[in-house]
Simulated scan of single mutants.
Amino acid sequence: MHEQLKQQLEHAQAGDRGALARLISVLESGGSDAAILERCLRARHGGGYTVGITGAPGAGKSTLVSALLGEVLAEPGRVALLAVDPSSPLSRGALLGDRVRMQPHAGSPDVFIRSMASRGHLGGLAMATRSARRLLEACGWPLTLIETVGVGQVELDVASATDTVVVVLNPGWGDEVQANKAGLMEVADIFVINKADKAGLDATRRDLEGALASLPPERRPQVLETIATEGKGAAALWQAIRDHRAAITASGELEQRRLAQVRSELKGMMDALLANQVQRLFEGQDAHARVLAVSEGSLDIATASDQMLDLLYDQAAGRV
């Protein structure tokens, strides 16, 4: 299987989109094949750039992304889109609707569109999406857009793993976004008020700019207005993304962001692997014996934890 995965990776790097799609499925499904594939991927080598696009459901993100793709494709180059779906992999949620909205670009040889769900991937959806991003970079895709369907913790985790984060709001911006405002303020590099032809635009811009006023000017996200259904503002958004990339590249912030991303991803991978090992440990007789001992009062829980950790380390070192 190792050789087969290596061959598929070579084909994907040579431009075989079918091989690329199959490899993303491997990463989504998790297991030993995904681990083997991960070992074949390397860190960024200066080519890839990733833009995260998040916001509350119904904000018009997919329509805005479709309009943005039109602007990106007006220039030479290729772009990949990962549409992140945290819903059940059986129901697939709104994926069909998302693909319909992307249909104008789906046939372009310069566009790769993939909807993602967590399936069985160790570490969940955020980890699977980051793995897919690394795969796309390893296959030479220079720009990856990652669209999430909401503003929950999973979506914020995914967005924070990108280089430029675009947060999409609507006039009135609703209770759901208000509840997540702190998280949005932390990760956003650009705010887009979509559906700018609707009532409440001025109040939303005023509230948003007021919330951003406490940030230093150099850290204050740009606020744009779009009407995605008409393509209005998409060009300005694409220019803002390019400007942000140029600014953080020149200042050295991009390098620091990527180091922080790798640190976070490495820790997340280790957390997932450790959680898996602990789960396996608790399926054995040693854990059962200690659970009984703590329950009966013959062993305190702190000592039991220390003993279980020692056993975990011994197993990892191959001593048991």
Score class of each variant (00 low, 15 high):
residue 179 A to T: 08
residue 228 A to T: 01
residue 228 A to D: 05
residue 6 K to T: 07
residue 157 D to A: 14
residue 50 T to D: 08
residue 5 L to H: 13
residue 218 E to I: 05
residue 164 T to S: 06
residue 33 D to F: 11
residue 215 L to G: 04
residue 81 L to R: 13
residue 192 V to A: 07
residue 266 L to F: 11
residue 65 V to T: 10
residue 184 L to I: 13
residue 19 A to D: 05
residue 61 K to V: 01
residue 206 R to G: 03
residue 8 Q to M: 10
residue 190 I to P: 03
residue 116 M to W: 14
residue 179 A to R: 14
residue 167 V to L: 12
residue 243 D to C: 04
residue 169 L to V: 02
residue 15 G to P: 04
residue 61 K to W: 07
residue 17 R to E: 09
residue 55 G to L: 04
residue 218 E to C: 11
residue 275 A to F: 06
residue 212 L to Y: 12
residue 230 E to G: 05
residue 8 Q to C: 07
residue 193 I to E: 09
residue 126 A to I: 03
residue 293 A to E: 04
residue 256 Q to T: 08
residue 37 L to M: 09
residue 249 T to W: 03
residue 272 A to Y: 11
residue 3 E to T: 12
residue 208 L to Y: 11
residue 179 A to N: 10
residue 300 D to G: 02
residue 254 L to E: 05
residue 247 A to S: 10
residue 9 L to Y: 02
residue 100 V to Y: 10
residue 228 A to V: 03
residue 206 R to I: 01
residue 170 N to V: 15
residue 163 D to W: 14
residue 235 A to Q: 12
residue 150 G to E: 00
residue 32 S to N: 04
residue 242 R to E: 11
residue 301 I to K: 12
residue 76 P to G: 02
residue 94 A to R: 07
residue 73 L to G: 04
residue 259 L to G: 04
residue 167 V to R: 11
residue 279 Q to A: 10
residue 163 D to A: 04
residue 294 V to P: 08
residue 258 R to Y: 07
residue 296 E to P: 01
residue 290 R to N: 00
residue 298 S to N: 05
residue 155 E to I: 03
residue 212 L to H: 08
residue 35 A to M: 02
residue 251 S to E: 09
residue 168 V to S: 09
residue 98 D to V: 10
residue 50 T to Q: 13
residue 154 V to Y: 08
residue 155 E to W: 07
residue 226 T to P: 03
residue 85 D to W: 15
residue 240 A to I: 01
residue 161 A to E: 08
residue 75 E to M: 08
residue 108 S to I: 00
residue 294 V to I: 13
residue 177 V to W: 13
residue 167 V to T: 15
residue 178 Q to V: 10
residue 293 A to K: 10
residue 20 L to M: 14
residue 126 A to T: 12
residue 215 L to V: 01
residue 86 P to I: 11
residue 158 V to N: 07
residue 279 Q to T: 10
residue 235 A to G: 13
residue 17 R to Q: 13
residue 207 D to C: 08
residue 118 S to M: 10
residue 217 P to G: 06
residue 221 P to M: 11
residue 119 R to I: 02
residue 20 L to P: 00
residue 65 V to M: 09
residue 204 T to G: 07
residue 282 F to T: 06
residue 20 L to K: 09
residue 68 L to M: 03
residue 182 A to Y: 11
residue 83 A to F: 10
residue 218 E to W: 14
residue 167 V to N: 03
residue 162 T to E: 02
residue 240 A to H: 08
residue 167 V to P: 02
residue 38 E to Q: 12
residue 30 G to K: 05
residue 56 A to F: 13
residue 299 L to P: 01
residue 278 V to L: 15
residue 7 Q to Y: 06
residue 118 S to P: 04
residue 1 M to R: 13
residue 62 S to F: 08
residue 320 V to G: 00
residue 178 Q to I: 03
residue 284 G to S: 13
residue 164 T to I: 12
